[in-house]
Structure formats: C-alpha cells, structure tokens
C-alpha cells in the first residue's frame, strides 16, 4: 500500500492479523495522514492465564504462573449505583467487561443499539463498545445465543470483569 493513501478497512484488518501473534503492548502506525493505535491487552478472556511476554517476564520469578480467578465479579465497596434491571432475574451466562472503560450499546449517540434484549447473536456479534482513553474496542458476545438483559447501562463506566449482559447460550 502506498504511504500517501489512506488505509482501507482491509488494510487495518491485515495489520491486526499480522500483529495478533506477536508480543507487544501497544503499537502506533501511521498510514498517510491516518494514525492507528493498537493495544494488546493480555489475559482478557481468562483473567491472566495467557500472559503476554512482558507480563511473563515480570512473573518469571514464580513460574508457572497460576491462573487468576476467572471472571470474578468485583463490586465497589462504597455504594455505587446499582444497575437498574433489578426486577429482571438474570439467567444464563454473564458477558464480562474485558477491560476498564466506558460501555456504549450503540455505535454513535442516537443510533440504534447494536443489540436489544431478545436478539439472537453469534459468538462474533458486536454487542457494544468499550472506550478506553478514546480507543474504541468492539465487544463481542463470545458465544452464540440470546441476549436476555444488559447489566450495564449505555455510556456507563465499567470495570474490568464487570457484567455487561446475560446470554442464554444456544443448545448445541
């Protein structure tokens, strides 16, 4: 690709694919006048079992690194406002925030939500976005099934490991 042209979506996907298997924490790439920032956050899915290289270096003293508790629900100690849907009894599996940030249920203000409760999703369906320091991270369902309820409000501050939504996983 030429340095003077702006990247296509495919260019960016290729870049992510290329970087996906390598060890880095963050990368910044300039395509013409578009600059792309990528961040590779280790241990999102399993809370720490799959550590990235820099992490492994830090933990090398005590290898093998034990897996951290998976998907711990951590509640702020002080009375944080509890998410509204108290009336709904959440059923199914919980989809947790893979990072701290601000959770958005729609691609832009006023736009329709990615997903409404009751919708069927595939594992790679985007159910929302978490913004961290202006970096937008699409959040996928992770499993195929029906989203029953959202636990986090649109535009809510979320923590690592906080529940975003409940999903009733398809019977296989």
């Amino acid at each position: 690709m030429s340095a003077d042209t702006n990247p296509s979506w495919q260019d960016l996907l290729d870049l992510v694919t290329q970087l996906n298997d390598s060890n880095y924490e963050s990368a910044s790439v300039q395509f013409g006048n578009v600059s792309v920032r990528l961040s590779n956050v280790a241990g999102f899915q399993d809370g720490g079992a799959a550590v990235s290289a820099p992490v492994a270096a830090l933990a090398a003293l005590a290898a093998p690194v034990a897996a951290a508790p998976v998907g711990i629900a951590v509640t702020p100690l002080a009375a944080a406002p509890v998410a509204a849907p108290a009336a709904v009894v959440p059923v199914g599996d919980r989809i947790d925030a893979p990072m701290i940030g601000v959770f958005y249920r729609r691609p832009s203000p006023g736009a329709p939500a990615f997903i409404e409760p009751g919708d069927h999703v595939e594992a790679d369906t985007t159910i929302g976005i978490i913004e961290i320091m202006k970096l937008m991270n699409p959040i996928t369902a992770g499993k195929a099934g029906v989203i029953t309820v959202f636990l986090a409000e649109d535009a809510a501050a979320v923590e690592f490991g906080q529940g975003l939504a409940m999903i009733t996983v398809d019977a296989s």
Binding site: V65, M99, F160
Partner: peptide, 22 residues
C-alpha cells in the same frame, strides 16, 4: 472505593497507563 483496572499480572493492570488514566 475500589476500581478494578485489569487482570492480575502487572502487565495487564498496574503497568497500563491507559487503564489507569481511564
């Protein structure tokens, strides 16, 4: 109050400027 910024390894939490700033 406590806010959970990331997984247990420091490289996924305490060493991440973006996560701390957020």
């Amino acid at each position: 109050r406590v806010v959970v910024i990331g997984a247990s390894p420091a490289g996924a939490s305490y060493l991440r400027p973006e996560q701390v700033a957020q």
